[in-house]
């Protein structure tokens, strides 16, 4: 099986967000593989181990994303590609990203493309379904189980808590939801091996694209933090009295019940 995984480098979930000049300050922040993309990498490894084939992890970003690609390789992916847009793309949106990916996949053969269902930073959840549409392959989002048999895939997907069972032919693009698997940690031998695995670097030129082709359709004009919440009221007294007071507050002060 020819398997591709779309990966994004994101802020660590522990990070506090600081805004500097209308942008998120990345100085000193820890970065990780987007947690939903980890499910995609893990699933790809399990598929390859069962059916054979090769896994290529693809990311768009700058030099810094090499670290996360190496982590994916250390987990068990075979190859990786960094589409480095640092010098070419100043403003981007999901349209931009998918234009680039579409060009990348143009001459590729694939049975399965896996992605996270959403990235925890921008959280648009658009990339998977958009790319599937531009490659004209089916897309199944928020999957929680995947079985491949020949060119058929049996999939379970999470639909707001309900489970939908789906059958589809490959090639297919799936986006991964938590519950799909338990992503492995890279092993020490894995980390050693990863250093020697291929990491190809491409730029827009290599994909026959120039800046105008990927000009975004939307623009961020401001970034701000939510208003700080004042510490609330800790009730006191006997539990019965506290419960009584709470109900009164919820009804009369907060007016939510």
């Amino acid at each position: 099986m020819n398997i591709y995984v779309l990966m994004k480098r994101t802020f660590d979930t522990e990070e506090k967000i600081v805004i500097e000049d209308g942008r998120i300050d990345e100085e000193g922040a820890e970065f990780i593989i987007n947690p939903y993309d980890e499910y995609a990498i893990e699933e790809a490894i399990q598929l390859r181990d069962e059916h054979g084939g090769e896994i290529t992890v693809v990311t768009i970003g700058g030099e810094d994303a090499e670290k996360q690609l190496r982590t994916a390789l250390a987990m068990g992916a075979d190859k990786s590609v960094l589409i480095n847009v640092e010098d070419d793309v100043e403003e981007s949106d999901q349209f931009t990203t998918v234009k680039i990916l579409e060009a990348f996949f143009e001459d590729k053969e694939y049975d399965m493309i896996l992605a996270g269902n959403v990235a925890i930073d921008q959280a648009s959840g658009q990339i998977g379904p958009r790319l599937a549409e531009s490659l004209d392959i089916p897309c199944v989002t928020t999957i929680t189980n995947l079985e491949v048999d020949g060119d058929k895939a049996k999939i379970e997907r999470d639909v707001e808590g309900d489970v939908e069972k789906i059958e589809v032919s490959t090639p297919v693009l799936v986006t991964c939801q938590q519950g799909l698997n338990e992503p492995r940690y890279p092993s020490l031998p894995g980390i050693m091996k990863a250093k020697k695995k291929p990491l190809e670097e491409l730029e827009l030129d290599d994909l026959d694209l120039d800046e105008d082709d990927v000009e975004p359709k939307t623009k961020t004009i401001d970034v701000f933090l939510p208003p700080e919440k004042e510490a609330g009221k800790i009730l006191e007294g006997e539990i019965d009295d506290q419960v009584n007071e709470l109900v009164g507050l919820l009804r009369n002060e907060a007016k939510v019940i």
């Binding site: 802020f11 506090k16 967000i17 805004i19 998120i24 925890i120 930073d121 921008q122 959280a123 000009e215 975004p216 359709k217 939307t218 623009k219 961020t220 004009i221 401001d222 970034v223 701000f224 933090l225 939510p226």
Partner: peptide, 21 residues
């Protein structure tokens, strides 16, 4: 038309506009 949306799971917000289409 200015759209506000949460980013970083609601740790921050961004305002976006459509520039084309």
């Amino acid at each position: 038309v200015v759209f506000t949306r949460p980013i970083y799971s609601g740790k921050a917000f961004e305002k976006k506009i459509v520039t084309d289409g």
